[in-house]
């Protein structure tokens, strides 16, 4: 009988889909092999020892072996379960957004330790920070940098002039800033305010601590979201699906708040 080579790895479970009667295919993000897909057998049975360790959003330690098409999970142990996130609907949906972006911007078996670290740190932060919006922008800019889509924020994409502190333009098609004189040179541009550019630069440098101390106005926060969503949608050529439910929850919250205000 051929011996199956098993190996141990840490992983964050990005998602799962049901397979057959009681199995699931997991999409994992690992520190040394990047994204991997693995079969976890019997995990949908109530008595499965593995099931609770390989739910989405869990950081776990796994024993894997090479299967024919996919890896096979033989053992698993939770390292961090992010229970505060799991116990809160809004946080769960926000975490799924981070996970969905990671899945969308990475390919299987391409090592990218920075992405692993970013996702793990961001899940930890999500359970703690008071302003999740700035965490999303931080995550988006860092992730885009790690996978090769870092926007150019200091020199005009067209004339290469240093960007001045005036209203400039963000080009989704060009992936960076255009000065007012060159705004017409790319097909899809959005105005970007001086403040928004400052925040984006701060986040791109990776200074989450300083960024998290900022008190962004609702307008500035919306501007940043629109710019990043536009850029991401352009790069992926599709919507990030989990934003639909996230936005619905937000909308329902404002409606509930408005209803309460009436009394």
């Amino acid at each position: 009988m051929p011996t199956l080579k098993t190996y141990k790895t840490e992983a964050i479970v990005l998602k799962h889909i049901d397979l057959g009667e009681a199995d699931r295919i997991l999409t994992l993000y690992t520190p040394n092999q990047g994204k991997l897909r693995a079969v976890a057998r019997g995990v949908r049975r109530m008595k499965s020892r593995l099931g609770g360790h390989v739910e989405p959003l869990i950081n776990c330690s796994l024993m894997l072996s090479h299967g024919r098409a996919l890896e096979v999970v033989s053992q698993g142990q939770t390292i961090e379960s992010f229970l505060p996130i799991r116990n809160d609907l809004k946080l769960t949906v926000q975490a799924l957004y981070l996970v969905e972006l990671t899945d969308a911007f990475t390919s299987e078996r391409i090592e990218n330790y920075s992405v692993y670290k970013l996702l793990l740190d961001s899940l930890r932060l999500l359970a703690k920070v008071r302003n999740a919006e700035i965490l999303f922008r931080y995550f988006e800019l860092q992730l885009l940098g790690y996978v090769g889509y870092e926007p150019q924020l200091y020199k005009c994409l067209n004339c290469k002039a240093t960007i001045e502190p005036v209203q400039n333009f963000f080009s989704t098609s060009g992936g960076g800033i255009l000065c007012p004189n060159c705004a017409h040179t790319e097909p899809v541009v959005k105005p970007i305010s001086v403040d928004a550019l400052k925040v984006v630069r701060l986040l791109q440098r990776g200074d989450f601590i300083t960024a998290n101390r900022l008190r962004l106005s609702a307008d500035l926060s919306r501007e940043l979201e629109r710019i990043m969503q536009g850029y991401i949608r352009y790069l992926l050529e599709r919507e990030i699906k989990s934003t639909r439910f996230r936005d619905r929850l937000k909308r329902e919250d404002t409606e509930i708040a408005a209803d309460l205000g009436k009394f």
Partner: peptide, 14 residues
């Protein structure tokens, strides 16, 4: 906890 299981195998969430 599932009936018939060992506590040591229970995951953190359960």
């Amino acid at each position: 906890l599932p009936v018939g299981g060992d506590l040591e195998y229970a995951d953190e969430i359960t």
